[in-house]
Amino acid sequence: MINNQLKSEYVMIINTLWGGSLQCNSIENISEDVIRLIDEVLSKIRDGSTAMIGVHAVFEIFYNQTYSSWAKVIKAALDKADTHASDWIAVLRGNRQYRVVVNSAALGYKSPVQNALYKAAGFM
């Protein structure tokens, strides 16, 4: 089970990816389905931006260790460096070379994530 601190991180990731445009994005609506979809987006971003290793030492957390879930990566980032996954995404978006990786992953998952949030909020 994921705690509210980690759910809050997922809320920030969603806001960072979609600029606050997704409705029902709140801690109480971060369901297992939402987590699974965001984990897929994060994996696509990491896989597409692997060449970024070394740009900033803090981001070693996202590339140099294998974790069993993205929730564990996010928790490690919080515990080790008070770093948020949304910060990592923002840095990638700030680099012309990697912006397309983030935007492509976000575009492909916007509707499924919105639908999962609606479902968790009881609208579907």
Rank of each mutant, 00 (worst) to 15 (best):
residue 6 L to M: 06
residue 71 A to E: 14
residue 81 A to N: 15
residue 39 D to A: 07
residue 8 S to A: 10
residue 123 F to S: 08
residue 101 V to E: 07
residue 119 K to P: 02
residue 92 L to Y: 12
residue 26 S to D: 07
residue 83 T to W: 15
residue 114 Q to S: 15
residue 56 H to I: 06
residue 18 W to Y: 13
residue 123 F to Q: 07
residue 83 T to H: 14
residue 46 R to A: 00
residue 80 K to P: 00
residue 1 M to C: 01
residue 92 L to S: 09
residue 121 A to R: 15
residue 48 G to S: 06
residue 98 Y to M: 09
residue 59 F to D: 06
residue 32 E to K: 02
residue 105 A to D: 00
residue 92 L to V: 14
residue 9 E to A: 00
residue 43 S to E: 03
residue 69 S to Y: 06
residue 112 P to Q: 07
residue 111 S to F: 13
residue 23 Q to D: 09
residue 7 K to T: 02
residue 83 T to Y: 10
residue 108 G to P: 08
residue 50 T to F: 04
residue 71 A to R: 00
residue 108 G to I: 11
residue 74 I to D: 05
residue 55 V to Q: 11
residue 10 Y to A: 06
residue 113 V to L: 07
residue 72 K to T: 11
residue 50 T to Q: 10
residue 21 S to A: 15
residue 109 Y to S: 13
residue 50 T to S: 09
residue 35 I to G: 02
residue 94 G to R: 02
residue 116 A to W: 06
residue 47 D to H: 05
residue 40 E to D: 03
residue 12 M to F: 02
residue 33 D to M: 00
residue 4 N to A: 01
residue 47 D to K: 09
residue 40 E to H: 01
residue 70 W to G: 01
residue 62 F to W: 09
residue 23 Q to E: 14
residue 20 G to Y: 14
residue 15 N to L: 12
residue 113 V to S: 04
residue 65 Q to K: 14
residue 72 K to P: 00
residue 94 G to C: 12
residue 68 S to Y: 03
residue 64 N to F: 14
residue 55 V to C: 09
residue 70 W to Y: 10
residue 60 E to K: 13
residue 27 I to Q: 11
residue 96 R to D: 10
residue 122 G to Y: 12
residue 3 N to G: 06
residue 9 E to K: 08
residue 73 V to E: 02
residue 92 L to Q: 05
residue 70 W to C: 01
residue 26 S to E: 11
residue 100 V to I: 04
residue 30 I to W: 05
residue 74 I to N: 01
residue 81 A to K: 15
residue 62 F to A: 08
residue 112 P to H: 03
residue 59 F to N: 10
residue 62 F to M: 08
residue 1 M to W: 05
residue 66 T to R: 06
residue 8 S to E: 12
residue 93 R to L: 15
